[in-house]
Amino acid sequence: MAPNENLLEVRDLKMHFPFRSGSLLSEKKGFIYAVDGVNFAIRKGETLGLVGESGCGKSTTLRAIAQLHKPTGGEVMLNGQDLVKLSRDNLIKARKSMQLVFQDPYASLNPRMTSGEIISEPLRIYKKRGVLDISQQEINDRVELLMERVGLSRYFKNRYPHEFSGGQRQRIGIARALALKPDLILCDEPVSALDVSIQAQILNLFKDLQDEFQLTYLFVAHDLSVIEYISTRVAVMYLGAIMEISASIDLYKNPLHPYTQALLSAAPIPDPVIERKRQRIILTGDVPSPDKKRTCCYFHDRCSKRMDKCSASIPTLHEVGTDHNVACFLYHD
């Protein structure tokens, strides 16, 4: 593969959830537009950070890519195959190169399995389905190798999840994701449940593994400084759509979208001298509910630079600099 080739392409991905509310007689039906037309590509070997506030659809995007939710519309191209259209058997084969790491290391590990069983489970499943030809001895060796690689002693493989701390459990989750030698790992807030000192250890582990196994990450988080540290490129989501996508350094130095600017100025910096000098852009109000079909800019009701046309039509992503795309009428028509 050429170094700049796209590993994953997401085209016009939509994930709408139907809902019902009201009483029996005055029932209202509608959709939650959780993800509403998202486009991006991830190049081989890079980390794309997906950042946004709760309810903006970042986890749903990730789940729709993994086909854990069947998307309402759009394409998810992994290695040239559209995952949305694949049959169940083919999807299982294709998923081998795409694994997940979850947020909550307490909920995402089966408490009745030992850590060795948890890490080997993907291997055993693929062996049973006849996709993978691997002997029991090879599985055992792989598990021990993986445990040592993520910083756990191989002697812990007969222990149960409750015997591990939060950081160690997240290491088990990472080892499990690595078991099938995937190309792409989808990480859903993998460090937000961890303490500061452990968070740094896990972030460094992600970086080391990326160098060693040439992994590609889609990294979802709400913490802007974590995203800045881990990502090559960053996409900022709001209300189910991408507002701005750019190389990480560029985005933090030169944020263009008013929402990105507000988000960055709201993030605290651990330095009192800088904090005293900073001018915050404080947004008013809350994120609106995504239960209406949008016909105008998603951010227009909270935006300080609102113009007339913002409430008339939806701005689309446009390239405004090298590898810097923004969906805002301030920068294009």
Binding site: S165, G167, Q168, D195, V196, S197, I198, Q199, A200, Q201, L203, N204, K207, L224, S225, V226, E228, Y229, I249, Y252, K253, L264, A267, I269, P270, D271, I274
Partner: peptide
């Protein structure tokens, strides 16, 4: 030292305190 900072653009490796609380 172990907190990633927004205002630092150099991507040097994060310091991490070894071990567990």
């Amino acid at each position: 030292k172990s907190v990633p900072r927004l205002d630092k653009t150099t991507k040097e490796r994060l310091y991490s305190i070894p071990g567990q609380p």
